[in-house]
Computed example of a mutant assay.
Amino acid sequence: MTEFVLVAGAWLGASAWDEVVPGLRAAGHGAHPVTLTGVGEKQGLPVGPQTHVADIVDEVERLGLRDVVLVGHSYAGIPVGQAAGRIGDRLARVVFVDAGVPADGESFVSTWWQGPAALEAEIAGNGGFWAPLTAPDFEGQGLTDEQIARIVAGSTPHPGASLGDPAVLTGPLGSLRATYVKCLLDGPEPTDDVASLLSGESWELVTMDTGHWPMFSRPQELVRILTGAAAQP
């Protein structure tokens, strides 16, 4: 039995995986969605250096999990990629779902596609938090109005401290056994850093013809991809 530890991206807590967890459990696996400190039901708790990495590692250790597949969506790829190096032989695989990947010494903000200054200004203008997206921001992402409403209702401001936290890697990402899930409606090609990792022997690419939030738009397909990734040697 594989133990999936599921971490959603910015603004979202464990409830983002509500339509994925039952499918994983029905397939005989463990499924453990994590809410990162400062968002969702953990809103208001303090966030410091490496807090989100610790959230993930602590969940694995608290539950005594083995044969772990860490799943990081969007922003959560940054702490998940770091946590992967900290759980030792408990780790079976990492799945990055349309996610960022960590680079040693770099943060989510420092690699922001519009430039760090733009995101830093947005966070500073919102009291140190990244404001959640609104319904119009989800257009063109393969989501129904009901799915968009669920994402918006489940989103809380994201602590800027985590977004500016420099990554600390314990080893090269390229040595991980990893699957990268590219959601094509959010861009047809992986970013250059991901493409470089995919050129190695231990990373594989899987595509989904949907947008950036497949746990909402295509949960059953995502379950199939996750269980398939777990079956990889």
Score class of each variant (00 low, 15 high):
1 M>C: 14
2 T>W: 09
2 T>A: 15
2 T>E: 10
10 A>Y: 06
15 S>A: 15
15 S>Q: 14
16 A>Q: 04
16 A>E: 10
17 W>A: 04
18 D>Q: 13
21 V>T: 03
22 P>F: 01
22 P>K: 04
26 A>D: 02
29 H>S: 06
30 G>Q: 09
33 P>K: 10
48 G>L: 02
49 P>K: 08
50 Q>D: 06
52 H>E: 09
63 L>E: 13
65 L>G: 11
68 V>A: 12
69 V>R: 04
70 L>G: 12
70 L>A: 13
71 V>A: 04
73 H>Q: 10
77 G>P: 00
79 P>M: 05
82 Q>I: 03
83 A>E: 00
87 I>E: 03
88 G>E: 11
90 R>Q: 13
91 L>I: 07
94 V>G: 05
96 F>M: 14
97 V>D: 05
97 V>Q: 04
98 D>S: 15
109 V>I: 12
115 G>Q: 13
117 A>C: 15
118 A>L: 11
119 L>V: 05
119 L>Q: 05
119 L>G: 08
119 L>S: 07
120 E>T: 15
122 E>Q: 14
127 G>V: 07
127 G>M: 07
128 G>E: 06
135 A>Q: 02
137 D>E: 09
138 F>W: 03
139 E>P: 04
144 T>N: 09
146 E>Q: 09
148 I>C: 09
150 R>Q: 13
154 G>H: 02
155 S>I: 07
155 S>H: 05
156 T>I: 05
159 P>V: 04
162 S>H: 03
163 L>R: 07
164 G>Y: 01
168 V>I: 09
177 R>H: 10
178 A>L: 02
179 T>N: 09
179 T>K: 07
179 T>S: 13
183 C>R: 01
183 C>V: 04
185 L>S: 03
187 G>M: 03
188 P>C: 11
189 E>N: 12
190 P>M: 03
194 V>W: 02
195 A>I: 06
203 W>P: 06
203 W>Q: 03
210 T>S: 03
211 G>A: 04
211 G>V: 01
212 H>A: 15
212 H>S: 13
215 M>Y: 06
215 M>L: 10
233 P>A: 15
